[in-house]
Design a protein around this nucleic acid. Structure first.
Lengths: 124, 124
DNA sequence: TTAACACTTGGAGTTGACTTCAGGTCAATA
DNA sequence: TATTGACCTGAAGTCAACTCCAAGTGTTAA
């Protein structure tokens, strides 16, 4: 697969994918003889994984570290640690998100109320 | 209250609070004769609100617009729209977060398994 | 065969959200 | 009275994460 196809498949710009490879957020992508990237299933998998993690807000730094460890043997414990820490971060984000959503719901309901009062023709 | 007290109360740097005021993310804070900020309850409320919204990821831009409308009459519908849109954004973030957390759980479980296998002394 | 196009690289530029700095005022304390 | 410390302002700097650009190569279509 070309970078364009992968870009369309995962809705990430080709520049972003190249950038991810450059900084090591995804492993080196195989090339054809002429140097053009030729994504195999594994490379696609990494793109998909990084997209999922990034769009949830997992930091680039943590992903780079994970990918780096991935190619070294005997790093399972360290990789697991990274995942656990990132999972905890997302949990915190989730709590914050939930609290804020509740608050927005409350405020929105408040505006509903105000607007009902200010529209006398609605109270038939 | 001084900016320092407010900064400690809400765990936001004084610089951030001044920045928020400058860009209109919180309304103008009352001053003493000498020009020093003197936060009253309303000003504190705005700081707390902005902190809550920002830490959930609501964009600065949307909050500025909201604060701006807040001081104009007859803008209730517009304000409500902003809140609804931001609420929808958070909902999306939430879905993404949940999917990614599930995925991390799955991967973490996978590492548990691998590590159990690679530690024969644990299987008594 | 020449133009158009998709790709390559290294590096520079942009964006959003702060954060730091320089230079100044003012109140209180040694 | 001099200096310390908290505050002020406007402007410049930083950081993460892209995003765009210039200059070049290789393949396809007119």
């Amino acid at each position: 697969m070309t970078i364009k196809e992968v870009s369309e498949k995962y809705d990430l710009s080709a520049d972003t994918i190249r950038y991810y490879e450059r900084i090591g957020l995804i492993p080196h992508v195989p090339r054809k003889e002429n140097g053009i990237r030729d994504f195999d299933e594994a490379a696609c998998g990494w793109v998909e994984f990084s997209k999922c993690m990034r769009s949830a807000g997992v930091q680039v730094e943590a992903l780079i570290e994970y990918v780096d460890l991935f190619f070294k043997e005997g790093t399972e414990a360290a990789r697991k640690e990274i995942l656990i820490e990132q999972r905890a971060r997302l949990q915190e984000q989730y709590e914050q998100l939930k609290a804020t959503m509740d608050r927005l719901d409350y405020k929105i309901a408040h505006y509903e109320e105000i607007m009902a009062k200010n529209c006398p023709h609605l109270k038939s």
